[in-house]
Amino acid sequence: MIRSDRWKAFRILLLCPLMLVPSAIFLFGVPDIVAKFVGLVGLVFFGVCTVGWAISFVRPNRLTLTPEGFTLRDWKQTQHVRWRDVERFVTWSSSGQQMASWILHEEARQKSLTARINSTFGVDGSIGIGWPDPPHKMRDLLSRWKKRYAPEPRPDRG
């Protein structure tokens, strides 16, 4: 089992409340309606981020690898993915943050509402940020486990 890095969660947790202050200033201190809307969106977004990172600090995310697949538990959900459902692992970037992600086989994607929604972003799922190893190493680790426990069938071998 791999646990997310509490120190990384703590550093991000410190930044989120700092963004609440300017958001509150925009919402309550500026008469412009657009500024108030930006302030409201900022308060909601950074409020949720603060709660999520606080939970991740207290209860780190967990990635458990087994011969059947992997289980990712973060602050909002627990997700089980079978090795045989994964087509490949990739490093994906969102808003400048790289993370290890996966692309499912088409049949598996059709069975998962979350994957169908996420696939519009180019990947079917991601382990997120905050792990002890960089994203490319996490991707390589997941790829090695998949290769070991669910190698792709080759056309010449069936």
Rank of each mutant, 00 (worst) to 15 (best):
T91L: 12
S93Q: 15
Q79L: 11
Q79G: 01
N61K: 15
Q79R: 13
V86T: 06
S112N: 09
V81G: 02
E68I: 00
A54H: 06
V48E: 08
L72F: 05
T91S: 13
F57H: 09
E87A: 15
R116W: 01
E107Y: 06
D74Y: 11
E106P: 07
W75S: 10
V123D: 03
G47Q: 03
D74F: 13
R88N: 08
I103G: 00
K111E: 14
Q110T: 06
Q110C: 10
E68C: 05
L104A: 10
V48T: 09
V123L: 06
F70K: 00
I103R: 07
T91D: 12
V86L: 00
D85I: 01
S119R: 06
W75G: 01
T114V: 13
R116D: 07
V123I: 15
P60I: 11
M99G: 08
A54I: 01
W92A: 04
A108E: 05
W53Q: 14
F45Y: 12
V51C: 07
F46E: 00
A115L: 08
E106Y: 00
R62V: 15
F46M: 04
N118T: 02
N118S: 11
R82I: 05
D74E: 11
G69D: 06
F70C: 00
I127V: 15
I117N: 09
R82E: 12
S95C: 13
L72T: 00
G96K: 02
T114N: 09
C49M: 14
P67Y: 01
W75V: 10
N61E: 14
P60A: 12
A54W: 09
T50W: 10
F45L: 15
D124L: 04
Q79I: 05
A100E: 07
T66K: 06
S93F: 05
V51H: 01
W75E: 11
G125W: 12
R73S: 08
S126E: 07
T66N: 04
H105M: 09
T114K: 07
S93I: 13
I129Q: 03
I117L: 08
W92P: 02
T71R: 14
L65P: 05
G122F: 12
S56A: 10
S112K: 05
R84M: 07
S101T: 06
Q110E: 14
S126W: 02
E68T: 09
E87I: 03
L113T: 13
W83T: 00
R82W: 01
P60G: 12
Q110H: 14
R84V: 09
V58L: 15
E106R: 09
Q98W: 00
Q97C: 03
W131H: 01
I117W: 02
L104C: 04
N118V: 01
I103T: 01
A54P: 05
T78H: 05
A115S: 03
G128D: 03
W75L: 04
A115W: 03
S101C: 10
F45Q: 06
S101D: 04
G125H: 10
G47C: 09
